[in-house]
């Protein structure tokens, strides 16, 4: 299958799943990172623990929990199906959900570090110049945490691209629908004589991962130079 449509289908599906997962998780990750970094509230530790849970749980367990909650008969999945006719389980959107949840803690961690590194004195200065909290966030905080957001995005994207355990448990590996690069590699390894195809999928994984790292390093260096005070 080296470069036949099936091969490219797996690669583009993986990219689509990872990109969707990252894009949807990003604003949420910024909000949660802000909450954890800047607000003291009752249940701070619980939120922190929940966010980090996918990082420490066996991915298969996360996938199973997703199946229970977001399956067509699950409390959330059932509602989604009834109201919108949306099915997540065994669907590429479900793969994106699983990938997003697995990537979420990594994104929150990176972005939270960004928030904690911002000098709150600069935000106070903006407020004295008449900027509302919203304007301060958009024009000062957000640009200053851009390197953290970038790092979180790249980490999250790479994690989403490589997600295996939760994805295969929640959405299986249906060719053309939920079969991502890792699940395709795993599947091919179960069949004798398919090592050739595996090599190319592995190569694509390495290139994508390296590419993401190099681009993000380059962007981060540029941003850091711009922000150096």
């Amino acid at each position: 299958m080296q470069f036949d449509p099936a091969f490219w289908g797996i690669v583009t599906l993986s990219l689509r799943i990872a990109a969707t997962a990252t894009m949807i998780a990003l604003p949420l990750a910024v909000a949660v990172a802000w909450l954890l970094a800047r607000r003291q509230f009752w249940g701070h530790r619980i939120v922190n623990g929940l966010v980090h849970l996918p990082l420490v749980l066996p991915p298969v367990v996360t996938g199973y929990l997703l199946l229970i909650v977001f399956g067509r008969n699950g409390p959330v999945g059932g509602v989604l199906y009834k109201l919108f006719g949306v099915t997540l389980a065994f669907n590429w959107t479900g793969a994106a959900l699983a990938a997003g949840i697995m990537a979420f803690p990594l994104m929150v961690r990176a972005i939270r570090l960004g928030f904690e590194a911002v000098d709150s004195g600069i935000e106070a200065a903006a407020a004295t110049l008449g900027a509302s909290p919203r304007r301060v966030f958009l024009t000062v905080t957000l640009p200053l945490i851009a390197p953290g957001i970038l790092a979180g995005t790249v980490l999250g994207f790479a994690k989403a691209l490589g997600e295996f355990g939760a994805t295969i448990t929640f959405v299986a590996a249906i060719p053309g629908q939920t079969q991502t690069i890792p699940s395709a590699i795993y599947g091919l390894l179960q069949v004798p004589g398919q090592e050739g195809a595996v090599v190319w999928l592995v190569a694509v994984s390495v290139v994508l991962a390296m590419g993401a790292l190099i681009v993000s390093e380059w962007l981060a260096t540029r941003m850091t130079k711009r922000l150096a005070a």
Binding site: T128, L129, V140, R226, L227, A229
Partner: peptide, 27 residues
Amino acid sequence: HHRLMGYVFQDARLFPHYTVRQNLTYG
């Protein structure tokens, strides 16, 4: 942001991601 007090801090606290012109006209 509703007090209209100009504040010059010991450590300047300029916005590092803006030019001098953008810093000056922020408020």
